[in-house]
Design a binder for these strands. Sequence first.
DNA 1: TTGTACGCGTTATCAA
DNA 2: TTGATAACGCGTACAA
Lengths: 325, 325
Amino acid sequence: MATITDVASRAGVSTATVSRALNGKSTVDPVLAARVRRAAEELGYHPNGLARNLRRQETAVLALIISDVENPFFTAIARGVEDLAQTSGYSVVLCNTDENADKERRYLDVALQERVAGVVLSPTGHATSVDRLRRQGTPVVAVDRPLAGIVGDQVLVDTRRAAGEATTHLLGNGYQRVGCLSGPTGVRTADDRLAGYVDVVGGRSALFRRSAYRAEGARLAALDLLDEPAPPDALLVANSTMAIGVLEALAERGLRPGRDVGLVAFDDAPWTTLIDPPLTVVAQPAYDVGRAAADLLLARIGDSTREPATVTLEARLIARHSSRR
Amino acid sequence: MATITDVASRAGVSTATVSRALNGKSTVDPVLAARVRRAAEELGYHPNGLARNLRRQETAVLALIISDVENPFFTAIARGVEDLAQTSGYSVVLCNTDENADKERRYLDVALQERVAGVVLSPTGHATSVDRLRRQGTPVVAVDRPLAGIVGDQVLVDTRRAAGEATTHLLGNGYQRVGCLSGPTGVRTADDRLAGYVDVVGGRSALFRRSAYRAEGARLAALDLLDEPAPPDALLVANSTMAIGVLEALAERGLRPGRDVGLVAFDDAPWTTLIDPPLTVVAQPAYDVGRAAADLLLARIGDSTREPATVTLEARLIARHSSRR
DNA sequence: TTGTACGCGTTATCAA
DNA sequence: TTGATAACGCGTACAA
């Protein structure tokens, strides 16, 4: 693999000149510059990013650490982050933690060791520690869920309010016993959505189960709820992956969404309009969350002293047919 | 940020000893080793991966470059790659090219410049060039689609045969005019699936359209086909994203899957069992494709002289109700 | 077993 | 405008 030294000797100049010519920094004699470019071309020279970053003490890559690549909500965020980052010449690498604290820690280590320019993180849980990154000066912005006990940049969705609104919507459509299926305790979004639900129905009549943010867990939880002596006649479900499990559970019990059991789920996944009846959803502006996060991150990279910002975006209810009889 | 030098002076030893102690390579006096670890701990020392990789001329990260993060097929591959890579201590970073040749080129450059240990690539199209990577000695394995004109490791799915089988299945279920909706020309999987379809129906009676591997494109293409004077009474659709568009098109025309228009689509997306009627699919072993690719890549990293291997996995038809009347 | 010293490939500083 | 040279932080011959 050709190095800058090879190019230099081939062009008959110093490495310094090669560097200057190729980076277009300081001004270089056009003739020399052309010679250098030619030599580089002929040698198939590509600068070694490792050496460059080591020298410059910076990298043009952002790490995006999310908990589930298979969840459309997070992939939409990824596209948002990517699109904005690209405009500033940053590349984005995606790391999937699979809701696993160990993997998360490992990827945070990688981010630290590889000295990425910044990280966008959707923390798996309580135990997430970004201390080392912050100590080292690597900017971190939290998305979707806040970082426990840390003041810093973050982009959140007002999911509690949205959960309340969805519950009210169900009640308004004549359902009497609205239940809720939420994610794991300690995961902020799950806690918030449950809280928003409780805000409306009141603590005494709350009827809910919690499970992992997965289809299978939700299916079991839903079955459990439906088999109660006094089962719910409507369900608020905390994300679209769980919604899949809930729909399966309803099918197993021969219950029809809407008519038998009202349904509202978080996240406007692409398939929600395809099913019968179409699913009423709480659409989160995932793409915009991603863009906002990248925006905050880039701003922070540019100026580490600015005030930490919290951006809160609104979710909106899209009423379709699964929430009416 | 603490460096190895800081640790060395704090522990009262040389940097060489610190390096040895922390990497557990050569043998070090236990007492000194403990002192080193303690000093490192106190300083919050984390080795600089850039410097380390520069020195070692290697990195423990794999790049996975795919064309669509929002396609469950690719995310499943991602999990396969990741799971296998983890067992060997490699991290995986995901790059989304969005079916865009420019982005792809950019990410290939990043991979080259950052000197990743290897890359798993699902090439967007004809123009994909991995010459530079290969020249540099970075192993590349192609997944899903082969790299044009290159002999190298690859993991493919026998999608042509599967397309033929699906077509036969539709014909066998009494559909008379089976049509096909495939992806863009030049994308190997799209070409193959179309070819598999033509293999069965014969060139003269072929009734097909091609569009981007996207819902909207497929919707339009499906509408176009359905509005023909002699429209198809069954459709083979080349992926699950397109299937969404096709289902929308059918709904717009008031056509019911199965009864009015038989339907088989590639990829067993999570929602395919939720719709009514459940979608008959050609399930590709995406997760296994990912594992196999990582396996090949790791083997190649370990031994660059081994024979290039092509792994071909089989897809299987899952007959549900959208393909019968 | 430990330390000294060099080099990995760049870029930035300083003289010329 | 150009070139020699010193870092960046680490790992590893080689010598002690």
